[in-house]
């Protein structure tokens, strides 16, 4: 059962073969080959679980390295990233799924039945980004943020500085002097040299 180190690296042709298969079956698109051992593809939300299942069961991408989200706030969407790994071919394949970041659409099908560990990722994504994964175990239990009632903090609109200024107080006695202003005030304070 141990993986053999004599196995050769996956070839670009093989990556393209996997991609072609996914493209035909599920309309997967946007192949980005980053390195010989790493590529990314994009798929629609409705096909995502089928794509992941297919990759795991037919193409040997059995390891879910992680699941996370990237906030593309300007475009109003989250990019979910399922980073899969094939130990036999030693290949990373990131599957990117775009979902809306607002409203009911901000949800995704759960994959905890495929990878029980995914339940933790999904719990965290719910807490940190506000993404719903209906059916995922203990989804609404606090993860790292016990008693948090603010915005999900990993969303880009959550302003950490504003939050900390609102929640904590600055240590008294600190003063800042702006270098340029200070030099102006001391070297050329005149109104005649103020443009």
């Amino acid at each position: 059962m141990s993986d053999q180190h004599t196995q050769t690296q996956i070839s670009s042709a093989e990556v393209h073969e996997v991609f072609a298969d996914l493209h035909t079956r599920y309309g997967v698109r946007g192949l980005e080959e980053k390195r010989a051992d790493q590529a990314f593809v994009r798929t629609d939300r409705d096909e995502a679980v089928a794509v992941l299942t297919h990759l795991r069961d037919r193409h040997g991408y059995t390891h879910l390295a992680f699941l996370t989200a990237v906030d593309q706030i300007e475009e109003g969407r989250f990019e979910l990233l399922y980073m899969l790994h094939n130990y036999e071919l030693r290949h990373d394949l990131g599957v990117i799924v775009e979902i809306p970041r607002e409203g009911d659409g901000c949800s995704m099908d759960t994959i905890h039945r495929m990878w029980p560990a995914a339940a933790t990722y999904q719990r965290e994504l719910r807490e940190m980004f506000g993404i719903d994964f209906p059916g995922s175990p203990r989804l609404h239990e606090d993860f790292a943020l016990e008693g948090w009632h603010d915005l999900p903090p990993m969303r880009k609109e959550f302003d950490t500085r504003e939050y900390s200024e609102r929640t904590y107080y600055a240590r008294p006695g600190r003063t800042k002097t702006d270098t340029r202003q200070h030099m102006k005030d001391t070297i050329y304070p005149s109104e005649a040299e103020t443009w």
Binding site: H63, A65, F66, W115, P116, A117
Partner: peptide, 9 residues
């Protein structure tokens, strides 16, 4: 169990 190695990452 070896079977759960990939399931639990």
């Amino acid at each position: 169990h070896p079977d759960i190695v990939d399931q639990f990452g």
